[in-house]
Simulated assay, not measured.
Amino acid sequence: MTITLDRAYWLGLLLSVVLPVLVGLVTTRVTHPGVKAVLLLVLSGATGFLTEMAHPGPGWDAGTAAVLALVSFGTATLAHFGLWKPTGVSGAAQDRLITARRAG
């Protein structure tokens, strides 16, 4: 039995690993974690559906796109807590583009 994955699936998986950093770039440290989670979920959904569109197979399948979106969200969550947060990349990304407004 041979299992092969098309290039589109590999690119989708790679993008899923980078998504938490992208969320960090557009949020701040004071952004509510629920907002960050919803943003990650939306980006993961878009990744799953776009990955299925990029798949060179016969036609677009909504079921496969939904599974890819769930895999993308799971991969992004694991990458955030297992790779980006412990190494400090998440915090650095949140300090990079958007800064919190100072009160007063």
Score class of each variant (00 low, 15 high):
residue 31 T to R: 00
residue 89 V to L: 10
residue 15 L to Y: 05
residue 25 L to Y: 10
residue 11 L to F: 12
residue 47 T to N: 14
residue 66 A to C: 09
residue 93 A to G: 01
residue 26 V to C: 00
residue 67 V to C: 06
residue 33 P to R: 13
residue 76 A to P: 01
residue 83 L to Q: 11
residue 100 A to G: 02
residue 37 A to T: 10
residue 29 R to A: 08
residue 68 L to I: 05
residue 31 T to C: 03
residue 73 F to Q: 11
residue 58 P to Q: 11
residue 1 M to Y: 07
residue 7 R to P: 05
residue 27 T to M: 01
residue 62 A to N: 11
residue 18 V to Q: 02
residue 84 W to N: 03
residue 84 W to P: 01
residue 72 S to A: 15
residue 43 L to A: 14
residue 13 L to V: 15
residue 8 A to K: 03
residue 40 L to W: 04
residue 97 L to D: 04
residue 88 G to Q: 00
residue 24 G to D: 09
residue 48 G to I: 10
residue 91 G to S: 02
residue 60 W to V: 12
residue 52 E to I: 02
residue 16 S to W: 10
residue 40 L to Y: 08
residue 7 R to V: 11
residue 15 L to M: 13
residue 36 K to P: 00
residue 66 A to G: 12
residue 82 G to A: 15
residue 55 H to R: 14
residue 37 A to Y: 06
residue 85 K to W: 12
residue 28 T to Y: 02
residue 19 L to M: 07
residue 30 V to W: 03
residue 16 S to K: 09
residue 77 T to L: 12
residue 38 V to S: 13
residue 4 T to W: 08
residue 36 K to D: 10
residue 8 A to R: 00
residue 71 V to K: 10
residue 97 L to K: 00
residue 10 W to E: 07
residue 71 V to E: 04
residue 21 V to W: 08
residue 80 H to E: 12
residue 91 G to H: 03
residue 95 D to H: 05
residue 51 T to V: 11
residue 104 G to R: 07
residue 6 D to N: 14
residue 34 G to I: 04
residue 94 Q to I: 02
residue 16 S to F: 08
residue 76 A to C: 05
residue 14 L to K: 00
residue 87 T to K: 12
residue 58 P to C: 02
residue 89 V to P: 00
residue 80 H to G: 08
residue 2 T to W: 03
residue 33 P to E: 06
residue 32 H to M: 01
residue 52 E to M: 04
residue 74 G to V: 13
residue 92 A to W: 07
residue 61 D to K: 13
